[in-house]
Design a protein around this nucleic acid. Structure first.
Lengths: 203, 203, 203, 203
DNA sequence: AATGAATGAGAGTTCATTCAT
DNA sequence: CATGAATGAACTCTCATTCAT
């Protein structure tokens, strides 16, 4: 609860990282205290419970995810297929940092049944689908675009499952490649961009 | 572990259910003792640690999953599209019991980074893919069938994520329907099978 | 402690209520902050410690008790038996509000052994006895009056114990009735004062 | 939870003493662990919660109180006035050990409003009254005996309040003396039993 | 004077695990 | 083989108190 305003987001970011790496239940308040430099009791000055803290972390993570990934959907200076690829590559980058996977799916599977954070999670996935849809309307009818974006998100989350137990990023890479290809475009190879004719995307 | 040999599988089944519902970390040895009727100390007679116990549970669950779901791939008396649907419907049934989702994906996202059970999980997903592939070879080339089966599993796991935070089984149902449809067949409506011309699948 | 001087007594009153309801140890500074509208740190501006705060609350409560209950002993326009009854009924009223019992006895039993507030408590009980004595001198010799007033206070405090674990106000009512009766007077029935020949006491 | 049966009562006795000295809320599980030689976690092997532990302590204390104090009511070899005095002196002895007062009244005032232990407490006070009544039937009509025993208990509890904030045992002694005297007998002086003509009671 | 922030200690409780019987 | 008992560590959360602003 950092004195300066800029520190609040930094605080939430650090908590986010811990929750992302260890999961909700396996993360202790002690872990969060250590990660943020506060004392355990200090955390309770700003958040009533661990769950409330997670609530804010989730809101923060949603905002950041929308800024970093979903906002790309509106970069109209890029052709839609490049926008799509950029989004997917940014998703991928978030997932492969420390092999932590998708934060939202991690929390979804861990707490979905208890419903601790379902409202937040559903809102995020809804926004995700909406933005993805917007890009896909360049290739499909509005209705079909929505269906396809949902399907893409599902496929992505499944790919993350495979990635997480194997550490093999090819599951994610292959997902991106086939997704772009299915639009009728040839995606840029990720690892060897030597033969690219078009400018590389800075993801 | 119980007196009679036949009870060992019953023991593992009960543990499986608990782990499935609550997850690995959130399940305590006390929970398992209560679910199985043993004393907490008794568990350590048969399993060195909680992790070792989970190891066996995972092996048991894999076996059961192969028997109940994957073995359908070899029911050659059924046409392949019916085999596929039957498999998908059985997956779905397992996931929607108590809204618990896919046991293997639950554990994968929770422990994949630590790698506690990755070998077992990879083996299971490999077997899953192999069997799905076998069915899909009726529609695709062997190579394409393998790719497609992996993609299907991913899409399924993603659908489960959506299902788990919403409780809406339509995510799973829609996945099945579009999967079958993409093969060029019309799947059987789930709820009202009255007008079916072909024999109903007992899932 | 608030801005205006008149609010100090209001502040102490609110603290008194909390201490009365929950007891000394079970009341937290947080509780007091909430009840008074100050911040927790603000409390320490006016009181060095929780104990010091309680000290003042006790002094305030003593004063109020003397004003509301003990001062009745000097209402010489009332015959002594009416004065006595009025005092007893006011004691009773304080005890039955929220079933909280006698503030002073509550604190006495909770902290008497540690002696945190014994001086204040003894002073209050002494004043209580003195004023009761004064009324009883109308019926007894000075010496006997003092003994009897002490005995009456004891009986009252015991009646409160019975009341507190049962919620049955009859323990207190019966105490009042038999006390007045022992003076040779018939006390006013509490519930049905319809047939009263003498003016009802407004307690 | 002592291996041997005799140790269980010893365990409860030690807990009783701590609760008696410090009160319910001010006694921590750590205090009880220290007093009994167990680890804090070990306490939870035998009692689900602190409240449940107190419940058993209260039951134990009730039993012991009945054995040590109330059972005297049936010592028919003693004349009733001696039985009464013996009971009162034993009450007094329990209360003056470490100036801790009456265990049941302590807990009653501390927790009566929340009702945590009211059932147990009411049962104990009821038994107390019953046994006291039995002795007093030697002096009063059954109905009057019951009233008088309740009144005596109240007076006693009030005397304990006075004793606890002053440390002056004379409040208790005076209560005993005047109680016996009111029966028409001269009680034995407690402190200087030199001039006794009748055999001293071994309390 | 007042507060938001912070803290070390400790609350009750649960954890996976061990061991004597 | 089984269990009741035990334990050290860790859990979430609250305590009375302090201090810079």
């Amino acid at each position: 609860m950092p004195v300066k305003k800029i520190e609040k987001s930094d605080f939430l970011l650090r908590c986010w990282e811990v929750f992302h790496l260890k999961g909700y239940h396996a993360t202790s308040m002690q872990d969060l205290a250590q990660a943020t430099g506060l004392q355990k009791a200090g955390l309770y000055h700003h958040f009533a419970t661990k769950q409330a803290l997670m609530q804010e972390v989730l809101a923060y993570a949603s905002t950041q995810f929308q800024r970093y990934v979903l906002s790309v959907a509106h970069e109209t200076d890029l052709p839609p297929e490049q926008r799509l690829e950029k989004m997917l590559r940014r998703q991928r980058r978030l997932a492969t940092l420390h092999r932590r996977g998708c934060f939202f799916a991690n929390i979804a599977l861990e707490t979905g049944r208890d419903g601790l954070f379902n409202a937040e999670l559903q809102a995020l996935f809804q926004a995700w689908k909406t933005n993805l849809s917007q890009v896909l309307t360049a290739f499909f009818s509005p209705e079909k675009a929505e269906q396809e974006s949902e399907r893409l998100m599902m496929e992505y989350e499944g790919a993350v499952v495979f990635y997480k137990i194997s550490g093999d990023e090819n599951y994610l890479e292959a997902f991106i490649v086939r997704t772009i290809r299915n639009l009728g475009y040839t995606p840029f190879p990720k690892i060897r961009p030597s033969s690219l004719h078009r400018p590389t995307l800075s993801v």
